[in-house]
Nucleic acid binder design. Sequence first.
DNA 1: GCCTGTCTAACGGTCGGTCGGTTTACAAAG
DNA 2: CTTTGTAAACCGACCGACCGTTAGACAGGC
Lengths: 187, 187
Amino acid sequence: MKDKLKSIAIQLFYQKGYHACSISNIADRAGIQKSSIYYHYINKEELLYDILKETMDDLNKSLHEITTNIEGTEEQLKAIIRNHLNFHMERQKEVIISDSELRGLTADNLRSILRMRDDYDKKIKEIIKKGIDEGIFINRDPRVVTNAIVTMCTQTSTWFNPLGNLSKDEIIDIYTKMIFDGLKIKK
Amino acid sequence: MKDKLKSIAIQLFYQKGYHACSISNIADRAGIQKSSIYYHYINKEELLYDILKETMDDLNKSLHEITTNIEGTEEQLKAIIRNHLNFHMERQKEVIISDSELRGLTADNLRSILRMRDDYDKKIKEIIKKGIDEGIFINRDPRVVTNAIVTMCTQTSTWFNPLGNLSKDEIIDIYTKMIFDGLKIKK
DNA sequence: GCCTGTCTAACGGTCGGTCGGTTTACAAAG
DNA sequence: CTTTGTAAACCGACCGACCGTTAGACAGGC
């Protein structure tokens, strides 16, 4: 039932937003009374935190696997981009919640989630910095470049349609080429 | 007072989110009773709609000026990117609200805002398509390319710090170069 | 007989919104 | 120069609904 509640909460937080979705909404959809939810979660925020924590954990875990198993700066970055895109197109609801409902957290929980996000971004920034040092990437502010890449990939969660006529792999291909080689035909 | 209410609402909707911010919150900050707000706005949603409408109007107006005053596909796209980045770094609060609080709108108002957003995106897509036809941009799905560019530029609103050590112009420069030429040093 | 999970019932509080009445500003009339 | 009319702007009390949360009872399985 705890898992059921979580997946219902993901659906509803995504659809209506955290504050617009009440405990009763979730209970109704689960077929139980709203008071019964408090057997599984101490309060509404913990339900949100549980979702965000799990999502960030999974994302960080997948990044860790890449940086330990793949060699070569360019190949690493390519794998990171592929992974990030894949994650955000597969788990659209969770990542959209993660991006828009941080304000629903109290100070301690917020700090915990933000640190996970910072860790993630920092690892990517380090790889871009390494690429610049190795002379394979153009020397531009790594912070800005990281933000540009991460945010554009993250946002696929908001527009990707699993039933559309473009597959995830096709989108990953286009994004990767755009990030590495840009828009313009080389003269 | 109506303008004052709007700017307070922008601040609070941005800080706490639309649903987490009550009419009383806004009234308190404005130094009036909450009932007085209903003299200026028929309900809470109209206050949100007013913000979103004005923001999208201004954005669309700025785009229109570019497409009528600038010639050449590449120069147009460059100007569009500069304008989009500038707008989103200058009016961070409004555009963040525009991106995250659409769910607070009822059907009619939502449709109206979404149409403005679609118009905007469509114009950019057409220019990219034109660039592909003219042989200056690499032939990739214009829908995906547009989404990639627009979302990455939009998201500067979430991380740009006006007090940071990077100016808007520096960021615009990096973004433009990244979009047109990518990350990699050409061999 | 105890633990797990759910129930019913109720709590205090806040929400968006309404109502009738009051203040303010200002202009026309005397 | 004062009085009066009027509309804009605001107030304070109030509404029903719903919020998140708690307490305590109860049913079924180990």
